[in-house]
Design a binder for these strands. Structure first.
Lengths: 197, 197
DNA sequence: CGAAATAAATCGTTAGACACGATTGATTTA
DNA sequence: TAAATCAATCGTGTCTAACGATTTATTTCG
């Protein structure tokens, strides 16, 4: 039994839905399943009834829920009482493509702001030519790129996700008559693309 | 922050000694060190002052100690309230060489009895010839062996520790005059050996 | 009623965490 | 002063846990 598992259990109990809980916890659904399973095996007690794909909490689960809540409260208390981590403050300068900035950032900023209310944001969209220098100099703290490959030394790079490019056209467009389209077929047509790096 | 770490912290705080804590937790001393280190880094707070090799708990550590105690109590409560694990009961039949039975078992039985008071023990010392059959039939639940190698199928085998054989002799014994002794040197001398399997 | 969509469980793989033993460096004891 | 002791560190191996893909069962919708 670990705090991590109790937290997962609490979120599942709140949602009565493994998939939503996984989203809320930024985990894979399979990981949620296995954590709950581990808890149930350790306690030798079912915590949820799975009727079809409906999830109901058992009596034992309700008992555990109270404990799990108290444990979470206590860990929060520990963090605020003992941790000298004076909450971060200052400004984060982030370079993000507009698509990323408008689609993903609002949710991220929202979450981050709850934990670190004294940090403000500064979004810019500098050119990719300057990017390397801007990062090295520290004028930019963080950058999101849409690209195939990155070769920056002295900078931490992490691949966050891959995304398929999907071609969208008006119903009347000649290309819609083809079953399969290759890059070559686009030759001569006007195509709108998200700006990549 | 995990329950396991808080428990380790609590034991270290009780002993003010990393090595003793490691013994009590059946862990390596280095593991205790790294767990405490991880806690201190997560909370960005020193929990113990290491003055030389003397360990003192800090003010923050004392605060955390209270929380850690309460968390441990709560996990115990969860286990007893929710786990359907009706405490084990019955008899464990254990085959152990006399040296093992007299040197190691008292402490082990003592600990085990605290957790499972309704389990009684039955120690026997059957011959190694019968051992395989006794294990397979279930007449013996558990066996300790002092041996170089074990080749039992359908039985879980785990190496617990290796131990050096040390030769002890009276000061006047002729062999004491040699700086190094090989097995061949023992030829013709009477040697008392622990019974092995 | 049948097809499509949805959700939890399972499986195999991989990456990360953790424990260990050995060693080091510092300090205390003999 | 030498020996013993203890926590920290380092390198290594193992075990855990997260993941993506798939399966199975159920529900929803056409």
């Amino acid at each position: 039994m670990e705090i991590r598992q109790l937290r997962t259990f609490r979120v599942v109990a709140d949602n009565l839905n493994f998939t939503k809980a996984a989203d809320e916890l930024f985990m894979a659904q399979s990981s949620v399943s296995s954590q709950i399973k581990a808890l149930e095996e350790e306690l030798k007690t079912k915590l949820f009834d799975r009727i079809g794909r409906r999830v109901l909490i058992t009596e034992a689960g309700q008992k555990l829920y109270e404990y799990a809540r108290r444990m979470e409260d206590m860990t929060d208390e520990i963090r605020s009482e003992i941790s000298t981590g004076q909450d971060a403050q200052g400004t984060l300068t982030i370079r993000a493509p507009e698509t990323v900035a408008s689609v993903y950032m609002p949710e991220i900023v929202n979450r981050f702001h709850k934990d670190h209310p004294r940090v403000s944001f500064n979004f810019i969209n500098c050119s990719d030519q300057q990017l390397r220098e801007e990062l090295n100099s520290g004028r930019i703290d963080l950058a999101f790129l849409i690209t195939d490959s990155v070769h920056f030394k002295a900078v931490n790079v992490k691949m966050l996700k891959t995304q398929r490019l999907i071609l969208v056209a008006n119903q009347t467009h000649p290309l819609t008559r083809k079953k399969k389209i290759t890059l070559a077929d686009l030759n001569g047509h006007t195509v709108l693309l998200p700006k990549t790096d």
